[in-house]
Amino acid sequence: MEDLFTSEIVRAENLKKTFTLSRKQQRLEKTSLTRKVAVNGLSFSANRGEIYGLLGPNGAGKTTTLRMLSTLIKPDEGDAYIMGHSVRKEPQKVRDCVGFLTGELKLETFFTPDYLFDFFGAMHGVEKETLVKRKRELFARFGIDAFSQVKVGDLSTGMKQKVSLVISIVHDPDVVIFDEPTNGLDVLTAKVVTDFLAELKRMGKSVLLSTHIFSLVEKLCDRVGIIIDGKMVEEGPLEGVCGERSLEEKFFELYHGLKGEIV
């Protein structure tokens, strides 16, 4: 039991999520269907200390999956376990051991990094002394000290990104879930993020990220899961999935097999 929980840190079992489409969405997606299966029976697992990449095209269901894992939305069917806690039955416990972050910056611009760190520490219920210690440590480690008293709105994009990354691990979560970490970022800021992820791995954390960028997976991830149309079509250690080919070649092979030629 113990062993299972410590090595297998995230386990998704047959996750399923269907959305009711609004009129507006039907128009946008040019469909008359009222329901859309966004995630369709997804199962996978990620181990401690690994970086796991969910790879898939637009609309594949990556965001939906990660939102279910971080308890922002509930699966219709199936369940997922983070550190052994069910996202359905123990969402509070899951939130305590998960840090969730999306690629876009979502910090209030009015506050300083210092203030926000304390605020989110309090939101996660971190003890005062622990918080002070962790702040000193993380701010030094990621070079935030220099601008910890400057309002977020006045920081450069790279600095902002660093701040939101650090704040996502204020409660020292075992798992960090990251939706499209480098989406829309310039090369310099993207580098801040990839360095951060590598550093998280060194710190012994498990990372679950979603992306449609092949190189990001090849550079960072230990395991990869390829999602197309809400289904996991291939899953395993990076070398195992790719074999001799590049990840890109493998992906398109799978994609053509499923959907035919792209027009």
């Binding site: 971080s70 922002l72 939130r95 998960v98 969730f100 910090l107 209030e108 989110f120 939101m123 219920g125």
Partner: peptide, 16 residues
Amino acid sequence: GEKERGTLSTILATSV
């Protein structure tokens, strides 16, 4: 404003 900028969902992901 907080909903539009998405800062509200950042708080939703915490255990508050």
